[in-house]
Simulated scan of single mutants.
Amino acid sequence: MPELPEVEVSRLGIMPYVEGQTVTEITIRQPKLRWPIPETLQQLKGQVIRRVTRRAKYLLLETDVGTAIVHLGMSGSLRVLPTSLAPEKHDHVDVTLSNGRLIRYHDPRRFGAWLWQEGDLPHPVLGKLGPEPLTDAFNADYLLAKAAGKKMAMKSFIMDNAVVVGVGNIYANESLFCAGIHPKRPAGSLTQTEATALVDEIKTVLAAAITQGGTTLKDFTQVDGKAGYFAQALRVYGKSGEPCPTCDTTLERIVIGQRATVFCPQCQPL
């Protein structure tokens, strides 16, 4: 699944071609995605896309009358293409622009979404989200306060979008390893020093992934078709049974919240 860095890379990729352009046509070939594409999305036609922003894993195409909300789901991707290029299988949505290009949404599994937010009214999918991890609102004091008294596993805690958005499975594994925190530790046991380290590592890992183009997953490529390459820099994710890059102890794999979790029992003691 594309995680926050992959979604941010998509935003940065389409932004130069999209901002300031007028939408001349919307073509919906498959309306049945994670949620049915609402007819109100047609209000995007004729509007100038003022900004392309991101909230959590949602891309927002902002206009004067409302905002198109795009989620890539498990296998979705966006391309900026010439209008002459014929669609292929699983190309479900085209947004044609006044500059002769189009945004094409491709999603084999159809777990993504295209929604419409009227005016400035907040859409329900954007409600109850925690702060963005790369902003000042996400800090050690905030994390410590949210963790107080909680018995849930640390990994599940930092993957909770109500706590902080965008820390998916890959980046939770990496951040906890770099901070030296066992993924099964109760969130409420977090100390001030650990909270500071964990916040710093989450920011560092996510920023590095964005800079390097997003993690290479089988379902994700950048807007220009080039795969990201942060996977080359992963230290523990997907490497159970291999030696720890810090101490050579064998990395172990467990399952937390139905997600594979890899950690070093020496560097991340329980």
Rank of each mutant, 00 (worst) to 15 (best):
M1N: 10
V7H: 02
E8C: 09
L12I: 06
E19S: 13
G20W: 06
R29H: 02
Q47A: 02
I49T: 04
V52P: 12
V52R: 02
L59D: 03
L60V: 08
L60G: 03
D64T: 13
A68R: 02
V70T: 12
M74T: 02
S75I: 06
G76L: 05
L81E: 15
T83D: 11
H90F: 12
D94H: 05
D94S: 14
Y105I: 09
A113H: 00
A113Q: 10
L115Y: 03
E118I: 00
L121Y: 00
V125D: 15
G127T: 15
P131D: 07
D136R: 14
A140T: 00
K151G: 02
F157C: 06
M159A: 00
N161V: 01
V164L: 08
G168A: 09
S175R: 15
L176H: 14
R185D: 08
L190T: 11
L198A: 07
L198S: 04
E201M: 12
K203H: 05
A207H: 11
I210F: 10
G213V: 05
G214H: 10
T215F: 07
K218T: 15
V223C: 03
D224E: 03
K226F: 06
K226D: 13
F230N: 14
G238H: 03
K239P: 00
K239L: 11
K239I: 05
E242T: 01
C244E: 03
P245M: 08
T246D: 04
T246N: 11
C247H: 01
I256G: 06
A260Y: 09
P265Q: 14
P265G: 04
Q266N: 15
P269H: 06
